[in-house]
Simulated assay, not measured.
Amino acid sequence: MTVTKPDKADAASLEAIARNGSILRRIAVRIPTYLSDIRENPAWLPMFVLARTMPARRLHWRGAKPVRAKKVQDTMFAGVNRQDVVDALQSDGLFSGLVLPKFIHEEIAAFVRCTPCFGNFDRRLEFMPTEHEQAEARFGVPLLSGHYFERILACKAALAIQNDPLLTDIAAHYLGGQAKLITTRVWWSFPTGQASDADKNLASLGKYHFDLDDWRMLKFFFYLLPVDEGTGPHVYVRGSHKRRALKHQLTLLVGHPAEEVLDVYGEQSPVTLTGEAGLGFVEDPFGFHMGTVPAHTPRLMMEVGFGVSPPSRRRFHGEPVIR
């Protein structure tokens, strides 16, 4: 029997079919979440469609209300100048230099170690984070993440970060006077050799993407345990919040391969953020970013996000709709 190898055109066609199938699966997984967002707030749909385009975003930014400068008191972030942060955000989309007091990040880490989390955003997959391997065996699925959702609000140290006046002040001076708190979440990212691409996409790991939860957003992130190259560090592409290739505006997908992104912004544009427990940074999440998959040590992270639209009750803690 003679076996004929496919020519280059056939190979390209097969690759395109596989890629399109992957795209459709990624969209299908998110459809229940999108429908929930539309039911809760019909204004979400035009935002989701138009906010990915630069002309619509620039037009919306013109509606930012000015904020009167005032001295911030009682912040836990001593020595941080708000204007330095805002200037860095406007130029690079990123500022790294916020440091949590030791007792704050230690209190949160202690709280979550003794509190059950939900694997892969699914409330049916509840387990203790110290029993990750046993939970994977019990549920029979790879557990790439463990989220706390509203449970984190029982931790006083987490609430102190959420309500810190410096974060609110930075958000108002970057986003405008309409800035309001729209997300607070804490989660684990676990090393696992069994996760599929679909699992990684759901957890926003391993692929550059941008966020479209609001017209204008700002996210503060804090490492609650040390993060090195093997702990799944966060990566941000500097300057990608200010410009966008046309093909990345005219698509329903927010995630794109690294080579596509770096072809536009340059090989030197990504910043990999590693550091000790307590390291904090803030970014404009419309810029391309990703969490990398931990290789050997779980990553424990907190996010406090600000936007300009009414917060979603479900998305406040980062919870999608799982079917």
Rank of each mutant, 00 (worst) to 15 (best):
R244C: 13
G230I: 00
K200R: 15
M128T: 11
T231L: 03
F149T: 09
A195H: 01
E229I: 00
W188Q: 03
E136A: 10
K200Y: 12
D164M: 05
D169M: 06
K219H: 06
V141R: 11
Q249Y: 02
G176I: 05
L205Q: 15
A203R: 05
A160F: 03
L252P: 14
H132Q: 13
G140Q: 13
L167K: 06
K242E: 10
I182L: 01
T231D: 08
F190T: 12
L175E: 08
A198V: 13
D122K: 09
A135R: 12
A158S: 08
H173P: 09
A203P: 01
M128I: 06
T231V: 05
H147E: 15
F149V: 02
A171L: 09
V186W: 01
R124C: 09
L159D: 02
V227E: 06
G146C: 04
Y148L: 07
S189E: 07
W187P: 00
H147D: 15
N201W: 15
K156E: 13
H234D: 07
G239F: 03
T231P: 04
R244Q: 06
Q194T: 04
L167T: 07
V254A: 14
K242T: 09
P233L: 11
V141C: 10
E150P: 15
P233A: 05
H173Y: 01
K156Y: 04
D197F: 00
P191H: 09
T168Y: 09
F221K: 01
R123L: 04
R138V: 11
E136L: 11
T231M: 09
L125R: 10
S196N: 08
A135W: 08
Q194C: 04
T130V: 15
K200C: 14
R151W: 02
F139A: 13
R243F: 00
A137P: 03
H132E: 01
P226A: 03
W188L: 04
T184H: 14
A157N: 02
R124Q: 15
R238N: 13
G239C: 10
S240G: 13
L253T: 13
T251W: 02
H248Q: 13
K207R: 12
A157K: 04
R216K: 13
L143K: 05
R138F: 10
D197W: 01
V227Q: 00
P165G: 12
L125E: 05
F190Q: 03
L143Y: 06
Y208V: 03
T130W: 09
W215R: 12
E150Q: 08
Y223A: 01
F210Q: 10
L175M: 06
K200P: 01
V237Y: 11
P226T: 01
A160I: 00
D199V: 03
S189W: 02
L159E: 13
A158H: 07
L181V: 05
K247E: 12
P165Y: 03
E131K: 14
H209P: 10
R151T: 14
P233G: 00
H173E: 15
R216A: 12
E136C: 10
L246Y: 02
I170A: 05
D164W: 10
S196Q: 07
